[in-house]
Design a protein around this nucleic acid. Structure first.
Lengths: 209, 209
DNA sequence: CAATTAACGAAACTGGAGTCCCGTTATGGG
DNA sequence: CCCATAACGGGACTCCAGTTTCGTTAATTG
């Protein structure tokens, strides 16, 4: 007798198993965007995915762990960044991308739901953190280039600058009823550039600017 | 026959009714902080509050509308801001207050839960938005004073500056596993000041800085 | 300080989310 | 190509979150 507690989907991951995962994750995304995290019904997800509800419960078990897997999938489909030659241009491109994503009814609702799920389960939170780590790492080089060009002071925490662009957009999405328009995106990018130039994101600078 | 569909708690709001609301809201806060939004059980809230579960279901009905009422209560307990004389000092005080709140195990978990609930129900979202509107309005005057002193350009959206202080702290709370320390608070305040001085928060400036 | 009835609370009840059972499908190794 | 079995799927079952019922308590009014 060996290890018979292997999770379903790990021994024969090809063919049907993969197809089931794909269609369940897409159905889960649709359902989350439509009904939100709280009103998500796994039986409904199974119906949309044209899959037995037993399968969904067996492979994922709970809503939060399904979301964790969805985040793993989303992390793999990271878009490559665009390069414009200037820090402000690059950060505006990033801000616009985030803004368009969050302003889109389906995607915006999905991100809200995914964030809500992450607040409820450590494993899901970990998956969410990994998702954003990847996105931040993808865009950080444009800040590093600005440092190399002397546009931004040496010792700047380049990852923190990227986060500074997204932060106000997510904050508005979650805590305000104001629209997430392009002006908000541009403002976020401009603020991040101004703060970075002023040395606000110097690594390990405990406030003694 | 008159309007017999008045919500329970509106006709005789004194004495017992008020005591029930107080103890249920406290219990709800405790339970949310401990178990998170997804695992909240109204029967458990009733038990903690030493109240019949029928009462909780009758007056609030769902977890999200209980959270909406909790937010109404939280909005009333807004702390007055401190004044230091300089914009950076005031914003650092604000950032430290937010940081201490979110870093506190109970309060941090509660805020996560409340935000999660707001993503699931329009009415709860409205209550959350109102909560933050109040907080922002409380602190905005310190930015206005900086405008009057000439520290920050005329035409600056003072509310947006206050939001810019909180945004990175909430973004870190939700999307990162990095600790919410005082350095993060100071950085948020410094970045907001630098960006505000540079005119990044000029009202209606569609990106043509 | 009664009388009225809003609001509470215990207990019985119900529906559907989540589990279990077992037969069927089809993957991957030999 | 065929076998062993991983993974799926329909349907029966269970259990508890949420509802209903009805008797009890206490807030308000005159």
């Amino acid at each position: 007798m060996g290890f018979e507690d292997a999770r379903p989907g790990t021994v024969r991951p090809g063919g049907r198993t993969a197809r089931v995962r794909t269609s369940v994750l897409r159905a889960a995304g649709d359902a989350l965007a439509e009904h939100g995290f709280a009103h998500l019904d796994l039986a409904d997800v199974a119906r949309r995915a044209e899959v037995g509800k037993t399968t969904v419960y067996r492979r994922w078990g709970t809503v939060t762990s399904l979301v964790a897997d969805l985040l793993l999938d989303m992390a793999e489909q990271s878009l490559p960044r665009t390069e414009t030659g200037s820090l402000l241009g690059d950060l505006k491109a990033n801000a616009r991308l985030v803004q368009r994503t969050l302003a889109d009814p389906r995607q915006g609702a999905l991100f809200k739901a995914v964030i809500a799920a992450a607040t409820c389960e450590a494993k899901t939170a970990e998956a969410l953190h990994r998702f954003y780590d990847i996105r931040v790492k993808e865009w950080a080089p444009c800040v590093q280039q600005a440092v190399d060009r002397g546009e931004v002071p040496e010792g700047t925490d380049v990852h923190e600058v990227i986060r500074a662009v997204s932060a106000p957009l997510y904050y508005r999405l979650l805590t305000s009823s104001a629209p997430l328009d392009e002006a908000a995106a541009d403002q976020a990018a401009e603020a991040a550039v101004a703060a970075a130039r002023a040395g606000a994101y110097l690594r390990g600078d405990g406030g003694r600017a």
